[in-house]
Computed example of a mutant assay.
Amino acid sequence: MINYHPDSRMLNEFSAGSLPLAQSACVSLHLNYCSTCQRESRKLQQMGGMLFERLAPCEVDASLLDSVMSRLDEPAPLTYEAKTTATDESPALMRRLMKGGYKDLEWDRINSGLQISRLHTGDVENEFALYHIKAGRTIPRHTHKGTELTLVLEGSFSDEEGIYQRGDFLMRDAEHEHTPTAAKSEDCICIGVLDAPIKFTGWNYRALNPFLSLQAH
């Protein structure tokens, strides 16, 4: 059962197409697991369409129209898709971003319990990465200089505020300080989307803070 969801503001911005691409991909992947948020997103899109239809027509500058028409040939935006096979449980969008499976990715070893693989979304302002936390291991205690979105893909983890399982979606910011810890029974793989570097608060990791930077691409 999914217990954690995007808030109404974020879901509204996602439905309106105004979220940054990496954040939108994270919300879209949550919708792959969550029928409740799927229904809410469709309602918001329908409401937006009704409001759009009520707008009075206006003249469009020819150069603007040419610009819009040229964008029709661009790749389609990232959207959620239902799972297509019983043998591959990864969401279709996740398979598209990974261009294969977890084993095909390049993983950076942060410490003995944590590996990170940064994926390309085309968003140059938000880092989109996979975090592989070994069973029972912990990400060092930290807070956030900006916004951090997290979506659990495999396994589960906990922090000072709760336990998060497959499909759960979290948003953390500078008001939150936590120590994510994978369940002892299995490894945890989750998505992390950052618009600013995290800030370690534990004394043994604080020296790293000046060297942390986003790797958005």
Rank of each mutant, 00 (worst) to 15 (best):
H120P: 00
S112T: 06
T36A: 13
A56L: 07
A62D: 13
A62R: 10
E125A: 10
E53T: 12
R71F: 04
T85I: 05
E127T: 09
L44D: 04
A92K: 11
T87W: 11
L119H: 05
I110T: 00
G136T: 08
M47E: 12
L55V: 05
Y102C: 01
L44Q: 14
A129V: 14
P91F: 09
V68D: 08
A76I: 02
C58G: 12
D123L: 06
G146L: 13
H120R: 14
D108T: 15
R54G: 05
M47N: 09
M50Y: 07
D123W: 08
V124M: 13
R71K: 12
N111T: 01
N111L: 03
F52P: 00
R137F: 05
K43V: 13
G49K: 14
L78M: 08
L97Q: 02
T79L: 11
L65G: 00
L78F: 05
T87G: 00
L44G: 05
F128I: 07
E40A: 15
S63Q: 08
L55N: 11
L119T: 03
T36M: 13
H120Y: 09
G136F: 06
T79P: 02
K83A: 09
S67D: 12
C37T: 11
Q38S: 09
Y131P: 00
A129Y: 14
G100A: 02
S90T: 13
A56E: 06
D61H: 10
P140M: 03
Q45F: 11
T147D: 15
N111E: 03
D66F: 04
Y80W: 15
E81V: 07
S90E: 12
G101F: 04
L65C: 11
P57N: 07
H142M: 02
P75E: 06
E74M: 10
H132K: 14
E127D: 07
N111Q: 01
D104W: 02
L44P: 01
G122Q: 08
A129I: 15
C58I: 08
A135G: 04
D61R: 09
A86I: 11
L114W: 09
Q45C: 13
L51S: 11
L44M: 14
S70Y: 06
R95I: 10
G113D: 07
H142V: 01
R54D: 12
E40Q: 15
V68K: 13
H132V: 04
D104F: 01
L105P: 01
Q45W: 12
H120W: 07
T147S: 15
D104N: 06
S90N: 14
T36L: 15
R137Q: 14
P57F: 07
N126K: 10
K103G: 01
L97G: 02
D66T: 04
G113V: 04
C37Y: 06
K134Y: 03
E106V: 11
L72F: 00
T121A: 06
E59Y: 03
L119E: 05
S70I: 09
N126R: 15
G101V: 05
L72R: 11
A135F: 04
T87L: 11
L119C: 04
Y131H: 09
M94P: 06
E40H: 14
P57G: 05
T143C: 01
R95W: 04
D88L: 09
S117C: 06
S67G: 08
I133D: 01
